[in-house]
Design a protein around this nucleic acid. Structure first.
Length: 285
DNA sequence: AATGGTCTCAACCGCGAGAAC
DNA sequence: CGTTCTCGCGGTTGAGACCAT
C-alpha cells in the first residue's frame, strides 16, 4: 500500500540550477504558493525532485532572504543561540529574519568557528580551549505540589561533549529554582574547586554556561539509580519555593508557543532570581 | 601566466518523525 | 496495523572562486 512515489528520480536533473529553472520555480510559487513539493516539479515543468525544489526556494530564491554579509550583531546572536541550542540550525535561523539554516550552518563552519578559536573558545562547547574537562551533574527533584497534586522533576547535566543538558519531566509546569548555596561536584582531580561549594552565579560565570534543550523525556534520572561514583557527582536539592511562577526556557529564548514545546508556561515572566535569568537576559538582545 | 592549496557555499545525502494509504 | 511516502533537518560534498607562490 502506501503512497505513490514523489518523483521519478531517474528523470531528474542534479547539480546547479539554471536561470531558467529558477524562473520556472519562482513563477510557479508566485502563482500557486509554497507547499505540495511532491507535485510541484511536474506542475512547474521542472525536471527536479520536490526536495530539490524546496531547498532551492528556501535557501536561495525566497524573496525575503537578506543576503549579504552577516553583521557583528548577527554574529554574536548566532554564537549565543548556538551556545544554548547547539547545532539546531533551523531554530537558530528562526531567530534571524532573512537568514536560512543552511546559510547559518555554512557561516558557522567557515567563519564563526575560526573566530571562536581565535578567542580561545571551543566552538562546540563554548568553553575555554584549555579548560579542564569536568563532568558535572546537577539534579533537581521536586514533588508534592499542593495545588494540583502534580509532580515535577528536572535534571541538568553536562553530557559527553561538555554541553549543559537540561531535561525536565513534569506533569504540570516546569519549575526550577536554584538555591544560592547549590553545590557542584566534579570528577576531575585537577579541578581544585570541585569539592568546594560555589554559588549558582559562580557556576554560570565559571563554566560559561552552554545549554542544549532536552524536551520532557520519559526516563527520569533518580539518585537511587546511580552508582556510588555518580551519586558523588550528583547534587540534589529540594526546590525551596514551590510557589514561584513557572518559567519556560523556550519562552525565555523568544520562541513562540508550540514552536519548540507546548508547555503551559510560555506566557509567564522570568523571575529575576531564577535559573533562567542568564538565558533570558543573554538572548533578548 | 601557471599551478596548487584553501575557502566558500549551493546542493546533495541520509535519516527520523509523522502522515497517508 | 504495517508499509510507504513526504517533509524537514543536520551533516557532508564538490565545483568554483580566491589567494599565494
Amino acid at each position: 500500500m502506501g503512497r505513490s512515489p514523489c518523483c521519478e528520480k531517474e528523470h531528474t536533473n542534479k547539480g546547479s540550477w539554471t536561470k531558467e529553472e529558477d524562473e520556472r520555480l519562482i513563477n510557479y510559487i508566485k502563482a500557486h504558493g509554497e507547499g505540495c513539493w511532491r507535485s510541484l516539479p511536474k506542475a512547474a515543468g521542472l525536471l527536479r525532485c520536490g526536495k530539490s525544489c524546496r531547498l532551492r526556494w528556501i535557501n536561495y530564491l525566497r524573496p525575503d532572504l537578506k543576503r549579504g554579509n552577516f553583521t557583528e550583531e548577527e554574529d554574536e546572536l548566532i554564537i549565543k543561540l548556538h551556545s544554548l541550542l547547539g547545532n539546531k540550525w533551523s531554530l537558530i535561523a528562526a531567530r534571524l529574519p532573512g537568514r536560512t539554516d543552511n546559510e547559518i550552518k555554512n557561516y558557522w563552519n567557515t567563519r564563526i568557528k575560526r573566530k571562536l578559536y581565535s578567542r580561545g573558545i571551543d566552538p562546540q562547547t563554548h568553553r575555554p580551549l584549555n579548560s579542564v574537562s569536568s563532568t558535572v551533574t546537577i539534579s533537581t527533584n521536586k514533588t508534592s505540589n499542593s495545588n494540583n497534586n502534580s509532580s515535577t522533576s528536572s535534571s541538568c547535566s553536562f553530557n559527553n561533549n561538555n554541553r549543559f543538558q537540561l531535561d525536565m519531566k513534569y506533569s504540570a509546569v516546569p519549575l526550577m529554582q536554584v538555591p544560592a548555596n547549590i553545590k557542584i561536584g566534579a570528577d576531575s582531580a585537577e579541578d581544585s574547586n570541585s569539592s568546594s561549594g560555589v554559588t549558582t552565579e559562580e557556576v554560570f560565570a565559571q563554566l560559561n554556561l552552554e545549554l542544549s534543550i532536552g524536551l520532557p523525556c520519559q526516563s527520569q534520572v533518580s539518585s537511587t539509580n546511580l552508582n556510588e561514583s555518580q551519586r558523588q557527582q550528583q547534587v540534589s536539592y529540594q526546590l525551596s519555593r514551590p510557589t514561584t511562577p513557572a518559567v519556560c526556557l523556550c519562552y525565555g529564548l523568544g520562541f513562540q508557543k508550540s514552536q519548540v514545546c507546548s508547555c503551559s508556561a510560555m506566557a509567564t515572566t522570568v523571575p529575576a532570581d531564577s535559573l533562567y535569568k542568564y538565558y533570558s537576559t543573554s538572548t533578548n538582545s
